[in-house]
Design a protein around this nucleic acid. Structure first.
Lengths: 141, 141
DNA sequence: GCGCATTGCTTTAGTTTGTCAACTATTGAG
DNA sequence: CTCAATAGTTGACAAACTAAAGCAATGCGC
């Protein structure tokens, strides 16, 4: 394994570890939030101001479309999300946060990135560097 | 939301996106590897030279111990992993890669961190910075 | 030594997550 | 209009996960 690959391998390992560590402080179990990790991700991905078609959701989550159907079913049953037919294409259904969903999302984001959280204990410099590097990694879109 | 929190929130969002993007290139479906994401993570976490007790596995994955039982069951059924009683404490079972498991792990790591992969397209400088920051984040252990 | 709470793992039962294949409805190309 | 492609749903099933109960080993207090 070359020098670069070793570095990449280590970075990858650390990213995975960080991901799981972060998961711990996701849904304080027994809380009224009570969202599964997958549901958190869906909620996280939908900007309150920019509803998202289910297909794009499946694409971003890297999973089957039929899986998204189930996820959205459960979120819709809890009135956190609404299916709306697209004006452009009647096959498409756009997922929109309800006010309750929007509130819950904000609360979740606050909880994950404030005070007690690992991320906010980094120096401002390191936080910016991290964001810059990650943006390069995901292609920014 | 303060300046710092915005940065942390963005970093978190990017991390999740990277995680899902990376997942795409995990198990080329229909491949002989044929590992589920969860199985990949277990395999990834076990260093061939340093077997790991199930409890620590559960801790790192941030999931219930009984879940790890199932994961290890399936890996053991495919002879990628072995349960061995610990010498120190007979309650503990340490998980050890078999030669086949070790080979598969190496192959997986190679595939995820070489050439085509996003991580290896970062500059060496950025790779090192990323590793340094992530180490601070996960506490290094 | 003896009790007794604790720890590490498994089992059972139940939900959620995820895949695949088949289906419906809509779209768009020819 | 015909036909292939696309968006989403359904049904059947495997895998991932949790909570609760249970078992064996540990270790602490006495």
């Amino acid at each position: 394994m070359s020098r670069m690959d070793a570095e990449a391998s280590r970075a990858f390992q650390l990213l995975v570890r960080f991901f799981f560590a972060q998961r711990e402080q996701l849904p304080p179990p027994g809380d009224e939030l009570e969202l599964s990790p997958a549901q958190c991700h869906v909620l996280h991905l939908i900007d309150p101001d920019r509803p998202m078609p289910m297909g794009r959701l499946a694409g971003t989550l890297g999973c089957d479309a039929s899986n998204v159907t189930g996820l959205v079913d459960r979120l819709e049953a809890r009135a956190l999300v609404r299916r709306r037919p697209s004006a452009d294409d009647r096959r498409v259904k756009v997922i929109q946060l309800t006010p309750a969903g929007s509130r819950l999302r904000a609360q979740m984001l606050r909880r994950m990135t404030s005070g007690s959280c690992r991320l906010s204990r980094l120096s401002a410099r390191d936080q910016q560097a991290l964001v810059r590097i990650l943006e390069a990694l995901v292609g920014d879109q």
